[in-house]
Amino acid sequence: MTSSNATIDPTALRELLDTGNGVRVLDVRTPGEFESAHIPGAYNVPLDLLKEHRAELRAHLDDDIVLVCHSGARATQAGQSLAQAGLPHLKVLAGGMLAWRNSGAPVNEAKARWNLERQVRLVAGAIVLLAVLASTVIPGAKWVAALIGAGLTFAAVTNTCAMGMMLAKLPYNRATATCDLGTIVAQLREGAPTAPATR
């Protein structure tokens, strides 16, 4: 694998996993999203934890790494963080879990949860709708809608999302199992990712 933040398609990743070529799949979604559905054998390393502890994680990642999220945006950010920490063998799953599912590849599933991107659309849309409705009574409320629009524009331009980062910290997006640095490092050391039952 190359040192650039290259992509790999679901078919190629599935072949690598089937042949046991020493590739590790790091899923950077929230623990709740991961618990809901993930690639068998993947390790859950949430993006915020990965960014904060990339140097510590770097010491336990010497294999070829494929980064996964819902659609590819968070995995790309994770790849940039790990590349800055000196990890040379990174790829991003093109299209993320959406593409993986669409390819018919196996998925470990448990209780279904809304993914983070869908939650952001719900919250942003609800705030804008309420602000517009409130502006019929309180004219200044329209500026709340404008602020959300500006935030979404900034999120698109910078490929970051402050609202998504805040929502990721809600209990809904945290799995029942622990997902802290110590647990993740132990799993990486032992080569034993968490694997809820396949449905």
Rank of each mutant, 00 (worst) to 15 (best):
M1D: 05
S4I: 03
N5H: 11
N5G: 03
A6K: 14
T7H: 10
E15F: 06
E15N: 13
L16S: 15
L16T: 08
N21K: 15
V23E: 05
V28G: 00
R29Y: 04
G32W: 04
E33M: 12
F34M: 03
A37I: 04
I39H: 02
I39L: 03
V45C: 00
V45K: 00
P46C: 05
L50I: 12
K51A: 05
E52H: 05
H53T: 00
A55P: 01
R58S: 14
R58M: 10
A59N: 12
H60Y: 08
D62M: 08
V66T: 06
L67N: 04
L67C: 10
V68A: 02
V68K: 00
V68F: 01
V68R: 00
H70N: 10
H70D: 07
G72P: 05
A73V: 15
T76K: 05
A78N: 06
S81Q: 05
A83Y: 01
Q84I: 01
P88K: 13
M97A: 06
M97H: 07
A99Y: 00
N102G: 12
N102I: 05
S103R: 11
P106Y: 10
E109D: 12
E109Y: 12
A110F: 06
A112M: 12
R113N: 14
N115K: 08
E117S: 14
Q119P: 02
V123C: 11
G125V: 12
L129D: 04
L129K: 10
A131P: 11
S135G: 08
V137E: 09
V137L: 14
G140V: 01
K142R: 15
V144R: 01
V144I: 15
A146N: 07
L147Q: 09
G149E: 10
G149R: 10
G151Q: 04
L152K: 08
T153K: 11
A156S: 14
V157G: 03
T158C: 10
N159M: 09
N159F: 07
C161G: 13
A162Q: 13
G164D: 08
G164R: 03
L167Y: 02
A168H: 04
K169D: 00
P171R: 09
Y172P: 06
N173G: 04
R174L: 01
T176L: 02
T178W: 00
C179N: 04
L181K: 11
I184F: 01
I184H: 01
A186I: 09
Q187W: 03
E190V: 06
A197Y: 07
T198P: 05
